[in-house]
Design a protein around this nucleic acid. Structure first.
Lengths: 340, 340
DNA sequence: GACTGGCACTCTATTAGCGGGAGTGCCAAC
DNA sequence: GTTGGCACTCCCGCTAATAGAGTGCCAGTC
């Protein structure tokens, strides 16, 4: 038996009420709070069907109903209209972000903004190096045998690494090295650089071969291997909203997961352009986050993606509102980046 | 009436047992576990005195005793001998830190190491800009009217800021500006730079005055005003050890406090060289952290301090062990920095 | 055939009552 | 100053009883 409109309406009502009250919702309360135009008994019949189909469940016999992950999924996919952000929220975003001076600043403000607006834990990934292009490479002598390699990307990231040279550098050698690497690499997307670095060494004059080899190995490490993804996190205190009732009694596994960059990257990685992804409950495939949902979105100038951002909260979250906020913030940050 | 040796011994025993078991400790249990050579009744008398003096208290009548903040304070000040780190721990530090490639890496490894060894929340402050000296300033053209200002300090920090120029830059102007600012500022401690920056503008050739003024204002901002302190945090999941019993039932205030950079900086700031500071309970003056203790230490090459690090946990913590670990890690990081 | 009111049933959460036990404070004796 | 003894207090865990919410089912109605 398929679900007619009223049953879907009942599901929506259950989700909305449960999200709000955090308590199993019964048939009586439902008809009281929503004008469904039918009696509790009828609703009970609908509920029985919804339960059979796996969209809701009872914590125990003779308790009200609670949505299952599948129920939330259906709710998000078919029962949620994207509600536009309120003007107040739009203003909040503007006010919060205006005056950001550099990438670090933008990322930090964004993550705090997200946490504040959604009242959940927020994660923002710095623009991914692999999706960035080299703007400039700078070599700064630190001592006779040490250089600081500074890379600036078109997304505003600045990465630095110490380079230990095989021997003291000759006069003008730094200047020469800087010229060569910039000639070859500036403007290139980082993903394309490894063969170019290789060439750099091959084409290098013999007397500078040693230095260049050394520099090249650090370059490769910085550019790709240690493909340095960075993250900012905020709003962990929001996990404690609603007591310890969400997250089945203990925050421990959630806090542990949040400390693992790899996990966070997985949560907000691999996003499609211009979409907002919702992972509900164990859809995220991470044991520690069984009872958490993640709403995430890619951001970047135009329709490209340079990084991801999102929020994490209990499966029992306000999906429409959260989705709208995440989407709006992602778009705003993208536009901001486009300006630079 | 002052406290004789046995009473102090009783206090030590209470602290040690309570830290271990997390349960109020009674007179009977005390004599059983520690060879005090007296009867429970005698211990009870001592306890009555200790309680009168404010070092211990009973959660309720006819329960065992629990140390007060003052009790922990006395324990730390007079009853704790610094126990040297075990060889295993020393090795753990080495193994963990070896291979750190740059400052970011060092800081991140340090904070994780601290969290892991002490099983508490760890905080590490990046070398403070105000205690650093300029090593080099670099100007990288981003567009015709934009420069990226990159500052490298002797402590390894790299800060960048976008500089919006008043108009298009003439040929060689960037080169000229870079030369001038480095001439004037390289090697200077950041705290001393403001007057120098002022001079820089005054001594500047008239045709470059506009650009230099602009650059100077950003410099001042970067160098001092926005005295950018950075922090790394790890081990928040450790807050959940020992149930929610510590921290009077809710982690919320603690997590909130940990999100405030200002608060964290206050906790691990203003340290004396070569000492480890212990703040117990509300000694830290922060409402949200009433039931937390902080063990912190400054670090830096030699006996100087360039930043602070520390851990935060419940007042009921293993002070001798934690102090030893924090001190050892601080020293190790200091030595590491001295090498660069 | 879908909806409704009624009713018995189930399960939880709350409360009260009742030892058992741990620990204390006090006191008299050593 | 120290000790054993003893009465007292309070928490904790257990059980039983009760109230309440919510369900499932059924027979009746439109």
């Amino acid at each position: 038996m398929s679900l007619d409109d009223r049953k879907l309406e009942v599901l929506r009502a259950i989700v909305e009420d449960y999200v709000e009250t955090q308590e199993p919702v019964g048939s009586k309360a439902l008809v009281d709070r929503h004008k469904l135009g039918v009696s509790p008994a009828t609703v009970r019949n609908d509920m029985a069907v919804l339960e059979e189909e796996g969209y809701i469940r009872q914590p125990h016999t003779s308790a009200g109903r609670v949505p299952t992950d599948a129920g939330y999924r259906l709710f998000v996919d078919r029962l949620t209209k994207i509600k536009p952000l309120s003007p107040a929220e739009r203003r909040a975003i503007e006010r919060f972000m205006v005056g950001a001076v550099d990438l670090d600043d933008v990322v930090h403000r964004t993550v705090r903004l997200l946490a504040q607006l959604t009242r959940q834990v927020a994660v923002v990934q710095y623009p991914s190096l692999s999706r960035s292009a080299v703007r400039h490479l700078e070599l700064v002598p630190i001592s006779t045998t040490r250089l600081m390699l500074v890379m600036i990307t078109d997304t505003g990231r600045v990465e630095q690494r110490l380079v230990e040279m095989p021997g003291p550098l000759a006069d003008g050698e730094v200047w020469e090295l800087r010229l060569r690497v910039n000639e070859k690499l500036a403007g290139q997307r980082l993903a394309d650089t490894p063969p170019l670095v290789q060439k750099l060494v091959e084409e290098c004059a013999i007397e500078r071969r040693a230095s260049m080899t050394c520099l090249a190995s650090i370059l490769l490490e910085t550019l790709v291997e240690r493909s340095e993804e960075r993250l900012a996190l905020a709003g962990t205190a929001n996990l404690t909203r609603g007591g310890v009732l969400d997250f089945q009694g203990t925050l421990r596994p959630v806090l542990e997961a949040l400390e693992e960059e790899v996990i966070l990257l997985k949560l907000i990685g691999d996003l499609e352009p211009r979409t907002t992804r919702v992972l509900i409950g164990d859809e995220n495939q991470i044991d520690n986050l069984r009872s958490a949902s993640v709403v995430s979105s890619g951001y970047g100038p135009g329709t490209t993606i340079v990084g991801g951002l999102g929020v994490l909260g209990p499966t029992r979250m306000d999906y429409p509102g959260t989705i709208a906020t995440v989407r709006a913030v992602a778009r705003y940050v993208g536009d901001l980046l486009a300006q630079n």
